[in-house]
């Protein structure tokens, strides 16, 4: 860009160079390599347990407990066969997907609408309402599980999808409300007012303007509440017996009276992790914040 001659520095021991000093580039790439190195170490540290679980899922009972650990072995599908044939893992997987999928959707829909109202409208005592919603989350689950069990029996909801969907929706709601409220607040009011003036109803403003701007928040929230519900064990084990049994209950059953069946535990762990990994990868591109960044400035 600059074609002007640079003022030559005639300080002793310093050459007036047209290009950056020698070695600058090399130092820079060294720095980049160091960063990559550290990232690699961190990845190995965090991913090794997962890797070990995946490997163990395909080991025979002898190989799993072998010491020193065997790295080369003959892979087997026995663990999965047993999970599916005698432990009902497939139907549990289906139950989990239905229950958690539906409750995540419901929590997201109701939670986002509540968050929008709490952030945008003048509601009397809305801070109190927001705190009350949060309190649902603060209640230790063990406190409510017995009453819920009794209620479920009374209304014939025991061992059905509906009781778990209700509980998981309720668990996810406070989180959605509190996270999404912040995202709504971050949207400049003038954007929504412009849409109102341009001919939108409030609901159109929400769906056409605000929701697209909240996508990063929605993506993050979906992953988190899905994971909470997906891993939930206490309610799942207390409120179901067989028909609506979910995967965490099956996973717990791999702890046998004679000890933990590591091969089975690894296999069910692998099975359980797949939907979460898939969801996180799908949501990943929205997780990059900053869609609303730089709206006002300029």
């Amino acid at each position: 860009m600059t074609t002007l001659p640079r003022p030559s520095l005639s300080l002793p021991g310093r050459r007036s160079a047209e290009s950056p000093p020698w070695g600058y580039r090399a130092r820079r790439s060294l720095k980049v390599m160091a960063v990559y190195g550290m990232v690699a170490v961190a990845l190995v540290f965090f991913l090794f347990p997962y890797f070990w679980m995946v490997v163990s899922a395909f080991k025979s009972p002898g190989d799993v407990t072998a010491y020193p650990p065997v790295w080369l072995f003959e892979p087997t599908l026995d663990n999965f066969r047993e999970l599916i044939e005698s432990m009902g893992a497939l139907s549990a997987l289906r139950n989990s997907l239905i229950v958690v999928g539906l409750s995540t959707c419901l929590a997201l829909i109701f939670g986002t609408m509540a968050a929008y109202a709490l952030a945008r409208f003048n509601i009397k005592g809305k801070e109190t309402i927001a705190l009350e919603i949060l309190m649902v989350r603060m209640l230790p689950p063990i406190v409510s599980v017995i009453p819920l069990f009794l209620l479920a029996r009374k209304f014939g909801l025991f061992d059905t999808y509906w009781i778990l969907i209700a509980v998981y929706t309720l668990m996810g709601l406070p989180f959605v409300v509190w996270v999404m409220r912040v995202f709504v607040q971050e949207i400049p009011r003038s954007i929504e007012e412009a849409a109102l003036v341009d001919g939108c109803t409030r609901l159109q403003v929400l769906f056409r303007i605000s929701l697209p701007l909240m996508l990063p928040g929605l993506a993050a929230t979906v992953v988190i509440i899905f994971m909470f519900a997906w891993n939930e064990y206490l309610f799942a084990t207390m409120l179901t017996s067989s028909a609506a049994k979910t995967l965490p209950v099956v996973a717990a059953n791999t702890v046998k009276p004679r000890g933990i069946s590591w091969g089975l535990a690894s296999a069910v762990g692998l099975l359980m992790s797949i939907p979460v990994v898939v969801l996180a990868l799908l949501a990943q591109r929205y997780l990059v914040r900053g869609l609303t960044f730089g709206v006002v400035k300029g």
């Binding site: 954007i191 412009a194 109102l196 003036v197 341009d198 001919g199 939108c200 701007l213 869609l291 709206v295």
Partner: peptide, 20 residues
């Protein structure tokens, strides 16, 4: 009347453009 029924156009101080 709601704003949308007034047939007006408004320019805001921070422009109010839809960033997406």
């Amino acid at each position: 009347f709601e704003p949308r029924r007034r047939d007006i156009a408004m320019v805001f101080q921070d422009y109010g453009l839809y960033p997406h």
